[in-house]
Amino acid sequence: MKKVLVTGGSGKLGRAVLRDLVAHGYDVLNVDSQTLSDPICPSVRIDLTNFGEVASAILGGIDERGGPFDAVVHLAAIPAPGLVANAKTFANNVPTTYNVFEACRLAKIKNVVFASSETVLGLPFDTPPPYAPVDEEYFPRPESAYSLGKLLDETMAAQFCRWDPELRIVGLRFSNVMYPEDYAAFPGFDSDPKKRKWNLWGYIDARDGAQAVRRSLQADFKGFEAFIIANADSVMTRSNTSLLAEVFPDVPQKGNISTNGTLLSIEKAKRMLGYSPQYSWRNEVGK
């Protein structure tokens, strides 16, 4: 499995994913509505809300950019709530995901990875989480049009896999994506823990997010699975005990909680994907 089509490779996480796949020997085509500024791999501009264009790309119908493709990574979306009108976010993101899944079905592609979101866990946690660390065991609690769309993406993925027992679709619930240049702001978070309570002080280094995508492509199970993808630590130097006592005093604590370990549990991703974060903001600040 070497030829991979990536949607949304021009975005913040997408660029890291393209670099990682190319570095590991994959033949990659990026399709996106935006131009890829770095010549990481071949790139084609398409309208991902147009099923004909999506199907043409995935079925190998673009001149000089033909398939067949062994796998598809779907990252393209309006990337967060509050960037455009709610209806536009929903009308862009959900049909785009359907177009990708359906085109993969027609192309008989059995290996699909897509970007879900940590927001399905109940972010921004104005209503406290049911317990900490949070994991994939409780039913999603979307609190925005963006998050609702991601839940529908996951629901579609499960049903596509029900239709085809040989299909694997992996939904990665990425935390807040960061590059090393973003880490300069992290030491300032300690002064007010409520600044980052909205996602339990989590983050994902884009390079570790890319690792999760690659490991998902290499996974050997069938069906649909969703995974929280965060880094191994929090954005804070204050201890989790102190943070939870101040901000979420009534939230039950589940299992052993380390001093600065992530409160967005990555145990399932470690167990089923072999995911192992390699980067931390603590090693970047002050370089």
Results as ranks from 00 to 15, higher is better:
residue 34 Q to P: 06
residue 16 A to R: 08
residue 41 C to V: 13
residue 72 V to G: 11
residue 71 A to F: 06
residue 44 V to N: 01
residue 57 A to G: 07
residue 22 V to F: 03
residue 56 S to A: 14
residue 20 D to W: 05
residue 24 H to P: 13
residue 22 V to Y: 03
residue 71 A to R: 13
residue 14 G to R: 00
residue 50 N to L: 02
residue 63 D to A: 15
residue 76 A to R: 08
residue 58 I to R: 07
residue 20 D to F: 06
residue 53 E to P: 10
residue 25 G to E: 07
residue 8 G to W: 00
residue 41 C to I: 11
residue 33 S to A: 13
residue 61 G to R: 13
residue 15 R to T: 14
residue 70 D to L: 11
residue 21 L to H: 10
residue 72 V to S: 14
residue 14 G to M: 00
residue 74 H to I: 04
residue 63 D to F: 15
residue 63 D to L: 15
residue 19 R to C: 04
residue 34 Q to A: 15
residue 19 R to I: 04
residue 80 A to C: 10
residue 30 N to L: 04
residue 58 I to V: 13
residue 55 A to P: 04
residue 36 L to S: 11
residue 20 D to K: 12
residue 16 A to L: 09
residue 43 S to G: 06
residue 67 G to Q: 11
residue 63 D to W: 14
residue 53 E to M: 11
residue 56 S to W: 00
residue 76 A to G: 09
residue 64 E to Y: 03
residue 26 Y to F: 15
residue 70 D to A: 12
residue 43 S to C: 09
residue 33 S to V: 12
residue 72 V to W: 03
residue 41 C to A: 15
residue 53 E to L: 08
residue 68 P to W: 07
residue 26 Y to N: 09
residue 19 R to Y: 01
residue 13 L to Y: 02
residue 29 L to F: 00
residue 57 A to P: 10
residue 9 G to I: 00
residue 21 L to M: 10
residue 53 E to Y: 01
residue 41 C to F: 05
residue 16 A to D: 04
residue 64 E to K: 14
residue 63 D to N: 15
residue 48 L to K: 04
residue 78 I to A: 07
residue 17 V to Q: 05
residue 48 L to R: 01
residue 72 V to D: 08
residue 79 P to V: 11
residue 74 H to Y: 09
residue 72 V to Q: 11
residue 8 G to H: 02
residue 31 V to N: 02
residue 15 R to M: 12
residue 11 G to D: 08
residue 21 L to E: 09
residue 59 L to H: 02
residue 51 F to K: 11
residue 54 V to G: 09
residue 72 V to L: 09
residue 69 F to N: 00
residue 38 D to G: 07
residue 31 V to I: 14
residue 43 S to K: 00
residue 35 T to Q: 14
residue 81 P to D: 14
residue 42 P to R: 04
residue 25 G to L: 08
residue 8 G to F: 01
residue 75 L to P: 08
residue 64 E to S: 15
residue 36 L to T: 01
residue 79 P to L: 03
residue 26 Y to A: 10
residue 73 V to M: 04
residue 73 V to Y: 04
residue 47 D to P: 08
residue 49 T to K: 12
residue 54 V to H: 10
residue 33 S to D: 11
residue 62 I to Y: 02
residue 31 V to T: 10
residue 43 S to P: 07
residue 74 H to V: 04
residue 61 G to W: 04
residue 53 E to I: 07
residue 13 L to M: 14
residue 45 R to G: 06
residue 80 A to T: 09
residue 66 G to Q: 15
residue 25 G to N: 08
residue 8 G to T: 05
residue 60 G to R: 07
residue 56 S to C: 12
residue 23 A to G: 13
residue 61 G to Y: 03
residue 80 A to V: 04
residue 45 R to T: 12
residue 40 I to C: 10
residue 29 L to V: 13
residue 16 A to S: 15
residue 39 P to T: 10
residue 52 G to P: 05
residue 63 D to E: 15
residue 70 D to W: 05
residue 53 E to N: 08
residue 51 F to T: 03
residue 73 V to L: 06
residue 13 L to V: 14
residue 49 T to H: 04
